[in-house]
Design a protein around this nucleic acid. Structure first.
Length: 719
DNA sequence: AAAAAAT
């Protein structure tokens, strides 16, 4: 039963999609009237032509022919490597001077004069920072979607001639500098070569086979591609309910062993939790009940019975919080208005493509509006952002009174996310909702200059959306005061409780208003959030969606058991396709190397990981979103929350270590009821671990011994 | 290992 289709009126995929909605021209991002906020002076400059297919192809061709290029191996021994200019063509091109040249721009400072900060910060920041719009966003700024593309597009730089600009190189901060081209910057990175572990270094012999393969230029004529969304009907897939037998799943055992886990019982003993056990017994939960069939499962039975051992270091499934399970049927015919949202917000949601609520939204919105603390679990792509974002705005509006536009007012809501890209994306959904009732949002995250963010805060915002580091930073600087924050959201809440995140998050939460409402959301919400629940939440309502098991999933999971030497070629073959592909690598270095490798064989690909500066991260993600590139190679920075339309294939070049990571990575595809495939590459020696991980994730996947030339590989790439 | 603040 395609639950997500229920109330979606045939357009389920759009419900939560921030990029859906009226598209506005990116050429007029601000008001043309000087009387209005967000007035944006029209630049009397020529618009740079976009790269068309021919130019792209040409660009690809201006790389030296394979035979003339240095042997591949030298890529890893920097010193021996000859000049590499040819390899830089892609990134260098226009991206180069943008920042420098901006200084040549005539007389813009006055426009920012009301800001206390030095004029040049905001200039420098302009590329990197998605935050820019919020300055213009307020009333007249058009749909936010154009923001990303504006910032990312290469077209900008050439608007200002390099010659006019004073030499300034020395003034660039570290973050901005490497921005020019990650390829160059890579050379600056210390000891790159030795960062590759044996596992990452693939055999090179696969190179030869590549020459025999057909040219890839067809990749550049994206426009000829037929639309494919309609090709799959979920109903064609066989039902799979019978695959799991509840009793076989080791996932439950950890419950019993919870006592062995230190640091947990003390803070979250079941007895402490009021109003929980009595409300939901585990056995009531429908998601379990439909699994009582036989246990046949995939083609790798190895650990079916072997999963019962528990060791403290295992990647265990923490006990799921007992939750109210909303049934998809319960949502039929319900509108956002019925749930308590006002007309403006409802209309804003409709513009975002959310015409009627998804189950998780129907479940949590009333409780949020009622002021309760809420824990929400809905699987990836089920619409969680709106589930907390819309009622949050409604609440602020109700309580805002007349102070909504008061200068320097303190934020009353805070949304925390684990990555900058996710914070940006969340803002993309919440901002239009907030704007519809006259509330302001701002993004506060690192990697971009602080000036604009601080300026926005000083003018006054209602909702802060950001990542922990910069938020703490601004708090310490006295530029951000959370004392009036009455609603705090933790997206990816379980992740925010992981080592490294938990303490900053706790510190931040303590700075919010005492007794403020807390909303914790994640697709994998579990008792890992106990540390926060105990300290910050009062009698939380816990919601999940019934029937979110694999039987109702739209994702097809495959595990390819391969020879290590075949890995490179396999990835190339899988990525050589016309639809969007997301490849996960475990390390930044490997992500980078894989990107190079794909480029070397003519597959346009970009990377996303923490070694890139924020400008490039934003730009590269936008390239995938916009379809200018179809392959993104990422670390787990992209594992959670990131929504890109129509990623139809996720390749895990490295298998994840945690079942949650698997769930989040694979959740980048198959969103909102669309079809998707997840392919995980493992070597023989990892089969057992992988099987156990999948059991914990309650995912049924076929394990197949695979060679790059197998039909299966071609078939997977084609779908 | 990655992420999240700069410095």
């Amino acid at each position: 039963m395609p639950k997500n289709n229920k109330a979606g009126g045939g357009r389920p995929a759009r419900n939560f999609d921030p990029s859906y909605g009226p598209k506005r021209s990116s050429s007029s991002p601000g008001s043309r009237s000087p009387k209005h906020r967000g007035f944006r002076e029209q630049q009397p400059v020529e618009k740079k032509a976009r790269w068309n297919a021919d130019e792209r192809a040409e660009r690809a061709n201006d790389r030296a022919p394979r035979d003339e290029r240095p042997a591949r191996n030298d890529r890893f021994s920097r010193d021996e490597r000859p000049a590499r200019t040819d390899r830089f063509s892609r990134d260098e091109r226009p991206a180069r001077n943008d920042r420098d040249s901006r200084d040549a721009r005539p007389a813009r400072n006055d426009r920012f004069s009301r800001d206390e900060r030095p004029a040049r910060n905001d200039r420098d920041s302009r590329d990197a920072r998605p935050a820019r719009n919020d300055r213009f966003s307020r009333d007249e700024r058009p749909a936010r979607n154009d923001r990303d593309s504006r910032d990312a597009r290469p077209a900008r730089n050439d608007r200002f001639s390099r010659d006019e600009r004073p030499a300034r190189t020395d003034r660039f901060s570290r973050d901005e500098r490497p921005a020019r081209n990650d390829r160059d910057s890579r050379d600056e990175r210390p000891a790159r070569t030795d960062r590759f572990s044996r596992d990452e270094r693939p055999a090179r012999n696969d190179r030869d086979s590549r020459d025999a393969r057909p040219a890839r230029n067809d990749r550049f004529s994206r426009d000829e591609r037929p639309a494919r969304n309609d090709r799959f009907s979920r109903d064609e897939r066989p039902a799979r309910n019978d695959r799991f037998s509840r009793d076989e799943r080791p996932a439950r055992n950890d419950r019993d062993s919870r006592d062995e886990r230190p640091a947990r019982n003390d803070r979250f003993s079941r007895d402490d939790r009021p109003a929980r056990t009595d409300r939901f017994s585990r056995d009531d939960r429908p998601r379990r009940d439909d699994r009582s069939g036989s246990g046949s499962r995939g083609s790798f039975p190895a650990s079916r019975e072997a999963g019962n051992r528990y060791s403290p270091n295992d990647d265990v499934v923490l006990e799921r919080l007992e939750a109210d399970a909303i049934q998809a049927e319960d949502v039929e015919g319900v509108t956002f208005g019925d749930l308590g949202l006002g007309g403006n917000i409802t209309r804003a949601l409709a513009e975002l493509g959310a015409e009627s609520p998804f189950p998780i939204q129907a479940a949590t919105i009333p409780d949020v509006l009622a002021g309760r603390d809420v824990l929400g679990r809905g699987r990836t792509g089920s619409g969680k952002t709106i589930a907390f974002g819309a009622p949050l705005v409604e609440k602020l509006m109700e309580n805002g009174g007349g102070k909504n536009r008061q200068m320097g007012r303190k934020p009353r809501a805070l949304v925390l996310a684990p990555t900058r890209e996710l914070a940006l994306q969340i803002d993309g959904t919440i901002q239009p909702i907030a704007r519809s009732v006259g509330l302001f949002t701002t993004q506060i995250y690192g990697g971009v200059p602080q000036g604009r963010q601080a300026g926005a805060l000083q003018r006054g915002v209602d909702i802060v959306i950001g990542t922990p580091g910069r938020i703490e930073d601004l708090i310490e600087q006295g530029r951000l005061d959370l004392s009036e924050v009455v609603v705090t959201v933790l997206d990816e809440a379980d992740h925010m409780c992981d080592l490294g995140f938990l303490e900053p998050v706790q510190r931040i939460l303590r700075k919010t208003s005492n007794g403020g409402q807390k909303l914790l959301f994640s697709a994998t919400l579990d008792r890992g959030v106990a540390a926060l629940v105990d300290e910050f939440l009062k009698k939380p309502a816990v919601h999940e969606v019934a029937g979110e098991d694999q039987a109702s999933s739209t994702i097809d999971h495959r595990v390819l058991v391969i020879e290590h030497k075949d890995k490179d070629e396999l990835i190339e073959r899988l990525a050589n396709r016309d639809e969007k592909t997301l490849i996960f690598a475990r390390t930044r270095a490997y992500a980078e190397r894989l990107t190079d490798q794909l480029e070397d064989v003519g597959i346009l690909a970009v990377a996303l990981h923490g070694d890139l500066n924020q400008a490039r991260r934003t730009r590269n993600l936008e390239k995938l979103t916009s379809g200018r590139v179809n392959v993104l190679v990422a670390t787990d920075v992209a594992a959670r929350g990131i929504h890109v339309d129509d990623i139809t294939l996720v390749v895990q070049a490295d298998a994840p270590d945690e079942y949650k990571t698997y769930m989040h990575r694979s959740g980048r595809t198959g969103r909102a009821g669309k079809e998707g495939t997840v392919v995980t590459l493992i070597t023989r020696s990892r089969q057992r671990r992988m099987a156990e991980l999948l059991e914990r994730a309650e995912i049924d996947a076929e394990f197949v011994d695979t060679h790059p030339s197998d039909d299966l590989v071609a078939e997977l790439a084609t779908r």
